[in-house]
Design a protein around this nucleic acid. Structure first.
Lengths: 146, 146
DNA sequence: TAATAACCCAGTAAAATACTTGGTTATTGT
DNA sequence: ACAATAACCAAGTATTTTACTGGGTTATTA
């Protein structure tokens, strides 16, 4: 589980689709404008999102992107995993080919934590995020965590 | 809140200190060996950890590093924040200088999520991780989440 | 048939990550 | 006193990831 600005771009873009899905497909040009990301970079991200069935693309005028599933069915974890693709696994996971006991322990502990983070993010759907926002109304409390 | 291999290195290294703190200070050379990270890179990471009071360094023979606080008092979030240093804040947070409504909403939603992730990781201490491991004993269930 | 917008790909610029090298300073045991 | 140890420090480089540029093509709509 990795969390970078790349993942942030993907999540915020998906949030736009969630919010604007009433008014038909959203073009990447619009998202590019809103999020200050280059169109072509967005295309790359959306190519991955599409491969994973998270979005549907419609060509031609009036086209754009829509969510590939219900917003309740799309987790934050699935979005981040879709654009990350590379999963750098630990050398000594499971296979017992790690001869240093200490190393194994710390690596396993990290895996455990990593698993917890994944589960946490997998339980947050796009719908959850939007709902919460509508409930609380304001977001002034938020601090600068990037 | 960012989550990369850099943070992983820091967390696993801190876990080593937690596990081995009975037998006195742990040298970076040992950690370098265990975790397959260059000594000098570890030095950089530990310089940051030290600045934040998370570790204490002892020079000379028999020296090394120890935790700067009790393992119950050191959260995973604090470790990751210590080595990350740069926090790339959103342009339009709080200040209301964002003229596009859609942009504001999605950015705020991201901030909200980011805050949730931070809170989650801030509630997991080094001690928590070690305890959990001792309880369950095995980690075979863990999958490849990196 | 022209405009639109997804889709595709190769190359490059910029930034973050990780390492290399070559030091100095404090501490310990001989 | 002094040699060994290991933290501490800094400048430079290699590598990888992130992000962008610019060139397309294909499908769809009016």
């Amino acid at each position: 589980m990795r969390l970078s600005t790349k993942g942030r771009y993907a999540v915020t873009a998906m949030l736009e689709l969630t919010i604007r899905n009433q008014k038909g497909p959203v073009t990447l040009a619009e998202i590019s404008e809103d999020q200050d990301i280059s169109l072509s970079y967005l295309e790359q991200l959306f190519a991955n999102l599409r491969k994973h069935g998270l979005v549907k693309g419609m060509r031609g005028p009036g086209g754009g992107y829509q969510l590939g599933k219900e917003p309740t069915e799309i987790s934050v974890a699935s979005i981040i995993m879709a654009v990350d693709e590379k999963v750098d696994v630990m050398k000594c996971k499971g296979e017992g080919n790690c001869h240093d006991g200490q190393k194994c322990i710390t690596h396993n502990l990290w895996q455990s934590l990593s698993c917890q983070i994944y589960t946490f993010l997998d339980n947050i759907s796009l719908q959850n995020l939007v709902d919460e926002h509508e409930e609380t109304g304001t977001t002034e409390v938020l601090n600068q965590l990037g």
